[in-house]
Design a protein around this nucleic acid. Structure first.
Lengths: 228, 228
DNA sequence: AATAAATGATAGTAATACTATTATATTAGC
DNA sequence: GCTAATATAATAGTATTACTATCATTTATT
């Protein structure tokens, strides 16, 4: 799988940056190190001054790439969901059987990312943790509707659409494919968070994965005779 | 129901405040108006200076009640989950039949709060919206583990426990009662948010409620013969 | 009326989230 | 190899936030 990735670039809405960070060494290191630092400090304590110090660059130079840290978070998470969509499509495209296809999709979305694919300066393992801990902060804002109109959440929505389409194919009678897709996407992040911080609120742990829990959930919900 | 509430007070972990806001008029108006303003401005733009101006009081006086706005958010959401637990217990205590009991519990947790119970200075309709939009910010922090040890999330955990217990009673063989309870709690907030801001990601709307979706989900998941 | 407690007014600090300006380094075209 | 353009760095400055400290005044208690 790795080799094919070499030639692929994840597209991100270009309104999310002032200057494309992929277009220069500094830009790439802003993205690379912001992922490391946001993971270490959390979104609130992370800022451009600290990032500048760490990469040996000037705060003002970072502002030439990203308007502010909110936009940077949107960029990072958009990249992540775009990457996830690619992973999903790649992993499922040759599966014809609807159940197996959906099952694989759920696995791709709910698994813990454990190895960096190394095809770019972006570490997906670290980025996965940022998504778990910070993603909801990117849309739980007063600006969400405007930003949605600008297409800032497009990659997430595309992914959700693909998943709900697979649900529809598997069980055309099920009435809530979009809601279920959202529950899988949101629920996976939430279960990963709970297993790390609120273990009493979940059965998930080292042995029982969010994948296992959510796979069981989805296939018990779907294809029932009493979808009423 | 209303009348009984008159004599009840929702208890909140007293480490969440410096001085009990229930103990004075100023304290109550801090809580009351912070709910209004946090709803209007969102958590990020809300601050103690603006709150002080609005209630005609001094910023420094507010700091005598709450250390900072993060603690205030924890206070408000703890109150909400404590109130929700009370509502849940009250609404289900006389139901013996496990399915009906669980069904009622799901309704209580997932419904849209539409009327203020008027038994205090706290408007539950507005507070419900704050919980939908801001709750996750209260725990998606680097301090979550310490704060959990201090018991700041106790009321949420108690509620989750009650719900998972009802799931266990209804279907003792089901392997993920805690995870499912978390999914109901988190999923309900998420579906309400989606219906307001990302309608393409959910079937929920004015006609189809999150309650309907989640009730269907839970009873399809539970009591299956193939819980494997 | 005396005392304590609560609140208000004012000022000040350190950090954040930028913006603007100018200087210097790097790169690209000729 | 020189020139011009572009990118980055350095410095300074502003408005706002998130407080803390101090002292004055109001309100409640005995």
């Amino acid at each position: 799988m790795e080799e094919l990735f070499q030639g692929v670039r994840i597209r991100v809405n270009d309104k999310l940056f002032v200057k494309d960070p992929e277009s220069s060494t500094l830009g790439k290191s802003i993205v690379e190190i912001s992922i490391v630092m946001m993971g270490e400090l959390g979104f609130e304590k992370f800022n451009f001054r600290k990032l500048g110090e760490r990469i040996g660059s000037n705060e003002s130079s970072i502002y030439r790439y990203f308007e502010n840290k909110h936009k940077l978070l949107l960029y990072l998470t958009s990249w992540y969901w775009g990457w996830m969509e690619y992973q999903l499509v790649f992993a499922t495209h040759n599966i014809a059987e609807p159940k197996e296809k959906l099952s694989k999709a759920i696995y791709m979305i709910t698994r813990e990312i454990k190895e960096d694919s190394n095809f770019s300066h972006i570490n997906e393992v670290l980025l996965n943790n940022i998504v778990i801990n910070e993603y909801s902060k990117s849309y739980l804002t007063k600006e969400v509707d405007e930003e949605d109109k600008e297409g800032f959440f497009a990659s997430y929505k595309r992914l959700a659409k693909r998943l709900s389409d697979m649900i529809r194919v598997f069980d055309p009678k099920y009435k809530y494919p979009s809601s279920l897709a959202s529950t899988i996407l949101g629920g996976a992040l939430h279960q990963h968070f709970l297993k790390n911080h609120f273990s009493s609120l979940t059965e998930c742990n080292d042995k029982v994965t969010p994948t296992e829990y959510l796979t069981n959930l989805v296939f018990n919900v779907l294809n029932q005779n009493f979808n009423d």
